[in-house]
Amino acid sequence: MPKNRTITIIGGGFAGLTAAVTAAEAGAEVTLYESHHSLGGRARTADGPYLTNEGPHAIYDGGPHWTWLKQRGLLGELAPLHTLDAARLRFHHRGALRRMPPLGFLRQTFRKAEQAPVDVDFLTWATGLVGESAARAAAAYSGVALFHHDPGALSARFVQERLHRAASVPAEAHFIKGGWGRLIDRMAARARELGVRIETSSRIDTLPTDGGPVVVATALASAARLLDDPSLSWESGRTVLFDLALRTRKGDPFALSDLDAPGWVERFTTQDPTLAPAGEQLIQAQLPIAPGESKADGVAHAERLLDLGFAGWRERTVWRREAVSNGRTGAVDRPGTTWRDRPAIDRGDGVYLAGDQVAAPGVLAEVSFTSAVEAVSLALRATRGTREAQPLDLKHA
């Protein structure tokens, strides 16, 4: 294999493994470095007995990664959510627990992102359509897919895409049985089958100098340090991760959505009982907190929601865990900006970025996937591999 057909990937999360498989399938010689002792990044699943992800994780079937994973047999078994279970979604609105959200909220969810302006904030735009109360409820609900403390202040186009897809019927969101770590295991096995050299516990502090393209698939802050480029920044969310195991009780809701302030609490064992020991159920929440708010503020929000929907949860608790996640919830776009304004994938001199805060379309993991495929496509083109890898048409993605 010629030297200029080698690709180095730094970061072994979902983006890095997507890049590794894509490059290897195109015939490149690939080496992937991961600083942690295991692969996965934020897609890791903890070891038992509680198979928690780093925050709630879902995969949306409307995105390009769905088809890509399915074609390669990597998607694996999904955890089914039955109709009766889904019907146990509850809404906290105007201080009370309800079975249905306001009608104006439902009307807003049907609108596609293309109908929303880029340069106006979501709350202003939606208020003109459905009134302020329903607009605020819709903004809060969208927090399940963007994890920001004030979604109404973000670009209407950005928020509406996430609202429309998060509230779609039938649901676009699906769950990997056994946790996202199972998906990572399958992707890593596929990469190794293709000849990718994977080195874990390998922290890279300086870029390789062998002349081949490098795909940096780390958190954006880490990429900025590695590339010594402080311009690599973009706004992200700040959240409290709240994991809880309860003794099982009939009547608990599947999930509880706060429409008064962004917040979502979900019982993940509803669709996948394997995530906790028999007789117990696993609940995960990711509560946005504003600048100046503390972990205690986010935990108190979660506990208020639990008090409303999960009777006797304190007495039933057998395990709990809390943590703060800073800037690790993907990019958020302010009015007047779109994904095209985020840090570019092509950094010049054979260096490319991949991850969920760079210039690629989609929601949640879709941004990581699309940027990874595009980064490899550009890298292969730069080494005159145009037949093997044509660039993605991101204009219409």
Rank of each mutant, 00 (worst) to 15 (best):
P2T: 14
K3H: 08
F14G: 00
A15K: 00
A15W: 03
G16N: 08
A19E: 00
A26E: 07
S38V: 15
G40P: 06
R42A: 10
R42Q: 05
A46S: 14
A58D: 12
T67A: 03
W68L: 04
L69G: 03
Q71D: 15
E77Y: 05
P80H: 04
L84I: 14
L89Q: 15
R98L: 13
R99S: 14
P117M: 11
D119N: 11
V120N: 06
D121I: 00
G128A: 09
V130C: 13
A137D: 11
A140E: 06
S142H: 09
D150S: 07
R157L: 14
V159A: 12
R165H: 08
A167N: 13
E172T: 15
G181Y: 02
R182A: 04
R190N: 04
L194K: 06
V196K: 11
I198T: 06
E199C: 12
S201K: 06
S202E: 11
D205S: 14
P208V: 15
V215H: 00
V216P: 00
S222F: 01
A224M: 15
R225G: 10
D229I: 10
P230H: 02
D243Y: 05
R247W: 09
G251K: 13
L256V: 09
L256P: 01
D258W: 00
D260G: 07
G263R: 03
T269W: 01
T270H: 11
P273E: 08
P277S: 10
P277W: 05
P277N: 08
A278Q: 15
G279W: 05
E280F: 12
A296P: 01
A300T: 14
H301P: 06
E303Y: 08
L305W: 00
R314P: 03
G348Q: 07
V351G: 02
Y352I: 13
A360K: 02
A365M: 07
T370C: 00
V373G: 03
R384F: 09
Q390W: 06
K395Q: 12
